[in-house]
Design a protein around this nucleic acid. Structure first.
Lengths: 117, 117
DNA sequence: TTCTAATACAACCATTTGGTTGTACGATAC
DNA sequence: GTATCGTACAACCAAATGGTTGTATTAGAA
């Protein structure tokens, strides 16, 4: 997996793209198998153009790619980008755990002090 | 950790809240230690009210909690909510891996067929 | 008590978002 | 060739977002 630097704007687009139930569903479906835009559009209670826009948002966030296949455009989920989002959340976890670590250190230091007195 | 069911709307709010660099920074800082709203406001090139709104968005998504301390409101990051977001992304990973699994199965079946012939 | 710091909240504004309809065009089916 | 299927894209609209300023309230400091 390529470890590339994500700008704030990139990260914004990734999370923004995931902040919609229809788009999350599209990502799930296109991770399972390639699906054309029209096949996707058949599944949702909205216009073809609306689905097209959702796919465009996901494509812009690089959460999916689009590949021409005859007159169709096959949409494919991009697991690398999902993993990058996971790594971002991992960073928060790490920050939290380091806080716990410092609290543990503090507690240990206090215990030591108590033992010393 | 409490495993509670997240509605689509809940998930939308979590990812939406994370789709802003200022808010992500607030989450990071309040995971490290409690910080008052005015302390946060001092750090960013925007009005106090704007920072207040960002905190409100995070609070609505339950990514932070706010606790009164004298005349201040201490903001505290909520690691449980971060973990819930991680679990959501894990689901995508799982979907992807199950696809790989099926492809492996298919490949294995074809190999078997070749061996049989 | 009086002043001030920290917050809450409303009103307002520009931009973005998420949807619509309509038109155009290339690729396939007939 | 012609019809039609799948897509692209523009124009439009209502609602949400992300910022502002202004006013009110409350807790601590002087």
């Amino acid at each position: 997996m390529v470890v590339l630097e994500l700008s704030d704007h990139d990260v914004n687009r990734i999370f923004r793209a995931l902040a919609d139930a229809t788009r999350r569903d599209i990502v799930r479906r296109t991770l399972v198998a390639d699906v054309s835009v029209s096949q996707l559009a058949d599944s949702y209670e909205m216009s073809f153009a609306a689905v097209q826009k959702h796919v465009a948002v996901l494509e812009d966030a690089r959460l999916v790619t689009k590949e021409p296949r005859g007159r169709e455009r096959m949409v494919r989920g991009n697991p690398d980008r999902i993993r990058q989002a996971q790594l971002l959340l991992d960073q928060f976890e790490t920050i939290w755990r380091s806080r716990i670590g410092r609290l543990d250190d503090l507690l240990a230091a206090e215990t030591t002090t108590q033992l010393e007195t």
